[in-house]
Simulated assay, not measured.
Amino acid sequence: MKKGISIYPGLDNTPEENIALIQSAARLGITRIFTSLQIPETSKESFARQLQELLQLADKLDMDVISDISPASLELLGIEEFSLPRLYQKGLRTLRLDDGFTAAQIAKLSQNGMGISLQLNASVLNEGTLEKLQQQGCCLDRLEALHNFFPRENTGLSEAFTLTKTHLLQCHGIKTGAFVPSFARPRSPLKAGLPTLELHRETSFSFAIRHLAAMGMDCIFIADSLPAEQELSALAELDGSSIALQPEWLPELTPLEKELCSNVFTARPDEARDVLRTVESRHLTAELLKKQQNAAGQPASTAAIAPRQKPALPRPAGTITLDNQLYQRYQGELQITKTDLPPDRRINVLGHLPPLEQRLLKYITPGKKFRFI
């Protein structure tokens, strides 16, 4: 999974703030920068100079700049007509083509020999457009796609729509990305955040990036142009190889339970109706019990997880549980409930997933890896 920030020359940030942001992102291993050449509020006087500085610094730090461009952007660049050689001379290497390009034009641009990469607007592509691109000789495997972000409240995409579009594109071999807002300093002029999904205007930054990763995005950008250091670090540390869940733990967890829950788990291939089961948990628990008994100088045969909640606790949807010794050979099985289940003295409750976190459970399909943070 690739990760990126956004810079808007001539808008909110000072040139010094933009430089500091790019340098901080590069230090953290973030490799992409999104910029737009078609924001009406941009100061034309400072745009060209700041853009040139941005491109030079990005090239020095080996960062890829994705420039959102349309035929209307040419005035900002001081170019009379859309010309790849002229854009290349300006230092532009990856173009996100928005409005104003036909399938035939996109296909021709995709065949350039200058090393200019293309990105398409993932939010508006459909099967018909993709078929037209193929008919025109466009090499879809050389393209990427990037969803829009939406400055105005209530105009962001739904989760279902975004997922459908993303799967369509990925089925055609097109890697797809999306944006999350920053909650540190939202961008002008509306300052309401710049999410792809409307939902993310209302959530935490952590949930937004973990949600896009769970949805299978190939690239995640912070859309607002001055994120907090904590947001940059969270994005840099995001591991797309497993779905990350943030539970509310019960306060009395044992050292064994804490160590067990620090592992990465795999959802079992035989999907249960009522609970999410894990492949590794019983084996991991047995190893931890053995380690615990060896440290105490006791026989391994005495190792057991005792039932410790009297009376047993109910298990509403999103409850994280661990089977105790009363469940015999199932001792040590970690589960997450997908529906409301009654109390069971054979099962210890470890914690709960808040309702928002439960939205991620549907992405933990058989064979998928997940972890707790």
Rank of each mutant, 00 (worst) to 15 (best):
Q56E: 11
L253P: 10
D68P: 06
C261S: 11
S206M: 12
D239N: 13
L92M: 12
C171K: 13
L235N: 03
A178P: 04
L212T: 09
N13S: 12
C138K: 03
P342D: 06
E271L: 12
L169H: 08
E357R: 08
R142M: 04
H352Y: 15
P299G: 02
E257F: 11
Q331E: 15
N154L: 14
F82W: 07
I33L: 00
F221L: 13
A214H: 05
C171F: 08
F372E: 08
I33C: 01
G193T: 03
A26R: 04
A178H: 09
A296F: 10
D218G: 15
R308F: 04
P269T: 15
I30D: 00
Q23G: 07
S241N: 08
P71I: 08
K369V: 03
G240L: 00
Y88W: 13
F47W: 02
E127I: 01
T266G: 02
P343W: 02
L28Q: 12
L92E: 01
I305F: 09
Q136G: 04
E17T: 05
P71S: 09
F205W: 05
K3G: 01
L21S: 01
H200M: 05
Q50F: 02
I222T: 04
K369D: 07
L238W: 02
A306W: 14
I7E: 00
T254R: 15
I116E: 10
Q298F: 09
L143W: 07
L87E: 09
I174M: 11
T266R: 03
R371D: 03
M215E: 11
P181D: 01
P269D: 14
P186W: 00
L288E: 05
L54H: 00
F161H: 13
K108M: 11
S281D: 14
L250A: 11
L57C: 06
S123V: 05
E144V: 07
G173Y: 01
Q298V: 13
N154M: 13
Q309R: 06
I174T: 03
N263I: 00
R27E: 15
R86A: 14
L250E: 13
A26D: 03
F179R: 05
T321H: 08
I69H: 06
I243S: 00
Q105M: 11
P251S: 15
R210F: 11
L288K: 00
L118R: 01
S117V: 04
L87P: 02
I336A: 05
T285A: 09
Q52I: 04
S117A: 15
D340F: 07
Q111I: 04
L76Y: 15
L190K: 05
T285M: 04
R185P: 01
G177Y: 00
A228D: 14
D218W: 10
R308P: 03
L61D: 02
C138A: 13
I30N: 00
L133K: 12
L61F: 01
A304Y: 09
T302F: 07
T35L: 13
N348M: 10
A145G: 09
Y363K: 12
L212I: 14
P314C: 09
F149H: 10
L360H: 04
K338C: 06
P247F: 11
L235V: 02
D64I: 00
Y327I: 11
T35Q: 10
T164L: 15
A312W: 09
A107R: 06
S206L: 12
L250I: 12
S158C: 05
E75M: 01
P314K: 11
D12G: 09
L360G: 09
G10Q: 10
S110Y: 01
K175F: 02
T278F: 03
Q335G: 01
